[in-house]
Amino acid sequence: MTGSKGAPLLQVRDLRVAFRRRGEPETVAVDGVSFDVAAGQVVGLVGESGCGKSVTSMAIMRLLPQRGVHITGSVKLDGEELLTLSDARMRERRGRDLSMVFQDPLSSLNPVIPIGLQITEVLRRHRGMDKEKAREAAVELLDRVGIPDPRRRITAYPHQLSGGMRQRVMIAIALACAPRLLIADEPTTALDVTIQAQILELLKEMVAETGAALIMITHDLGVVAGLCETVNVLYAGRIVERAQRHRLFGTPRHPYTHGLLRSIPRLDAPAGEALEAIPGSVVDNVPWTHACAFAPRCHRSVERCLEVTPAGETTGGRLLRCHNPVPASAE
């Protein structure tokens, strides 16, 4: 982690997102999430489906529907509050200052418009380029994200490209205006491992080249291990552990992080090693209001865990939300 001083690029404070459907109790998807992203930093948000990682990113991008969604807290980009920004101003900042890459490039690209046009559209709108200039810039962008023969490819439709190529196009669009913050929401989940490796490499290069900050959202601990400086582990809408990646993976303190790392089959594990499964599933969660949501599944839980909500405590650069953390034997 680069110890960048001063105000962070992105400052998320106590973000809470609740969905309200008529006739049904409110569901809280994100329950008080706070984190910072410094300029040029790569931050990971890790968790399983339903932990609120994608909703967090959608809330930052202001892409959630206005009806039935209740967002509180604060999201500041360069000190400017995004949550209260007018729609027009937000549209302007989206794409120019912050942009997003989604999991499924096929559904996030317009299927009836050639990819070149989808890139030039962004360039013309946000950077005021004329048609010719935008076209040249688009070719250059496609070339930069590693699309072979970009001059010809520019007229291709999304369905004519493979999944990996489509994701490259998405990255090209996201980077078209040299945003300061890029949010990648499971960008490689739909791809094969060899293609995933290509895309991760590309993201790394692009971030290094453009100096953009990156928020990497994924369920794959392996992906963040090699990519992110700081890793946030989410569980049931709250960050349960945050640390610099070497510390997080080296000595996971939260029983959830610890358990996850022990429950996935690893390529580098000795043969025949049994997996330590985490019992139950997310439906066993209890609400955070007066307990630790993970307590029912936790092998280290104590009485207190079902009575008092654990507070997030930061010690030595590590945030930990647990009454009875795994002993830091190696620290």
Binding site: V224, F249, G250, L261, D268
Partner: peptide, 23 residues
């Protein structure tokens, strides 16, 4: 070499054989 391993130490040391192109 393409499979990510949840171990930063190993990830930093690893040499990837990146395949080009698609299937």
């Amino acid at each position: 070499s393409a499979i990510p391993v949840p171990d930063p130490e190993l990830e930093d040391r690893r040499e990837r054989i990146l395949l080009t192109g698609d299937l």
